[in-house]
């Protein structure tokens, strides 16, 4: 599913000179945010599948829809960097455009099975876009690596 813009939901990376651009889309902002989270993880996790052996809840709020993207991805980055949390699936519900609650199924990093990719340092506001219409929401964000 990821990578094919024809699909209802998905994510893909795009070129940025020194960093990595990430595009995510879905029928709702919840779906697009879930795809963005999986896309972020796809950059950090080079290989190895993630098991749904554990669950974790996230609650994030921000001033607006764009800031919510930054806050949400930063939350996942923090969970990975401090606890090694990896998500196999994300279920995201958005309220009022600037609050979300999410259930993640996944596990913690296991170096015998998981190969790490490029470390993401942070989530940038530069050229950040959240575009939504009646049947699709599209997010573009640049990650500092």
């Amino acid at each position: 599913m990821p990578g094919n813009p024809q699909c209802r939901r998905g994510h893909a990376t795009f070129d940025h000179t020194a960093d990595v651009g990430l595009e995510a889309w879905g029928a709702t902002s919840g779906e697009a945010l879930a795809e963005a989270g999986l896309g972020l993880q796809g950059i950090m996790l080079h290989a190895g599948s993630v098991r749904s052996s554990d669950a974790r809840m996230f609650r994030v709020s921000a001033d607006d829809a764009a800031a919510l993207v930054v806050a949400w991805l930063s939350e996942l980055l923090y969970a990975f960097e401090t606890d090694g949390w990896l998500s196999a699936s994300l279920d995201v519900a958005v309220n009022d455009q600037c609050r979300l609650s999410a259930t993640a199924r996944g596990e913690t990093f296991d170096e015998r099975r998981h190969v790490l990719g490029v470390g993401v340092k942070a989530v940038s506001y530069h050229d950040l876009e959240v575009r939504g219409d009646a049947d699709a929401v599209r997010i573009r964000v640049i990650l500092d690596v």
Binding site: A62, V70, S74, A122, Y125
Partner: peptide
């Protein structure tokens, strides 16, 4: 350091003294 920068981008986005400054890029 990454988290310090990320935290203060958010602080500045909410600070009144910063909000009055018009800039072409939120970053």
């Amino acid at each position: 350091g990454h988290q310090i920068c990320q935290d203060y981008l958010q602080t500045f986005a909410q600070a009144p003294a910063s909000r009055s400054i018009q800039l072409p890029d939120r970053q």
